[in-house]
Design a protein around this nucleic acid. Structure first.
Ligand code: SF4
Ligand code: SF4
Lengths: 151, 151
DNA sequence: GATAAATAAGACTAAAAAAATCCTATTTAT
DNA sequence: ATAAATAGGATTTTTTTAGTCTTATTTATC
């Protein structure tokens, strides 16, 4: 029930690029060291991101990576799914054939809903906001339930 | 980004028990075959569920498993977390020490929010509803966006 | 109390996935 | 031409998941 390190590294990579500005080319070693990603692993991750149209790779001397679009138009869902594929919490959600009970299963609906909400949350997080946000600015409305701050 | 088979089996086990009624004792083999859980694996899962106070185990001849509380008072979050521990999508959410950036990271807040929403969704799914729901009754309000069923 | 029917508990194994790493090839600025 | 970069794939190591097996204990029943 965790995302993989590769997905986390991908987010860090894109976030770092977003922080440098929209079209800035950054070499891999810099990204790797600044975002604390194993350099050789980053080559793999970058390839997936490039295939997904999120970054552009420039080869050769003075090569490196750059965002392919403005940070505002890249969100965490895309980045994560570029690496790990479509998020789903239980196989029966994306492949109903995986479980004979699926057409008739209330739990399946719960997994679907949970999945939908995770994906919506990640989709709402674009990299312009993330790059600007810095510390403690939440892009989300305050939780409806927890009754503690107002006595 | 998937729950484990063990967690899925746990849900099936509890759901099956809930379907049999509140205090009905069912032997393990029946649960295993009806809920399609490898029998020997179910012994492990049951132990975790028992430790979490979700089921009661009766040993010896004519032994078996039963719900420890009314199905209404058991939800999917408890069951899943009894097996896999506290859900979190990225280690930095539950252990901020895992990443030095965490106090200052906007992505961290996104992961927190996503986690909160998954957990809320699972918490809302109690086993009385699940057992009754049968087929296509969703315990959730219709999604706000997808515009297809009403032409 | 003996017996048989159940589960407990934990060690163990096998398979799969994740997390890298390494090596050879290609691209490109100078 | 050369050196500085990345590409791409094969390989390895580690971790996690999934499941099994064996021995011990509990309990109903005769
Ligand atoms: S029982 Fe329901 S939730 Fe579990 S795998 Fe089958 S369809 Fe999915
Ligand atoms: S960079 Fe942010 S999201 Fe990634 S591990 Fe660190 S705190 Fe978590």
């Amino acid at each position: 029930m965790k995302i993989t390190m590769a997905a986390e590294y991908a987010v860090r990579c894109v976030l770092y690029l977003a922080q440098q500005g929209s079209d800035v080319l950054v070499n891999r070693q810099e990204i790797a060291s600044q975002a604390r990603i194993p350099d050789s692993f980053l080559t793999k991750i970058a390839q997936d991101l490039a295939r997904a149209g999120i970054i552009t790779i420039k080869q050769g001397a003075k090569g490196g990576y750059a965002l392919h679009r403005p940070p505002r138009q890249v969100n965490m869902l895309e980045v994560v799914e570029a690496i790990i594929g479509e998020i789903s919490l239980n196989e029966c959600v994306t492949k109903p054939a995986a479980c004979p009970a699926s057409p008739n299963c209330a739990a399946n609906l719960v997994w679907q809903e949970a999945r939908r909400r995770v994906r919506d949350t990640l989709r709402a997080a674009d990299f312009e906001s993330l790059a600007q946000a810095g510390a403690c600015v939440s892009p989300f409305p305050p939780p409806p339930s927890p009754p503690e701050t107002r006595p």
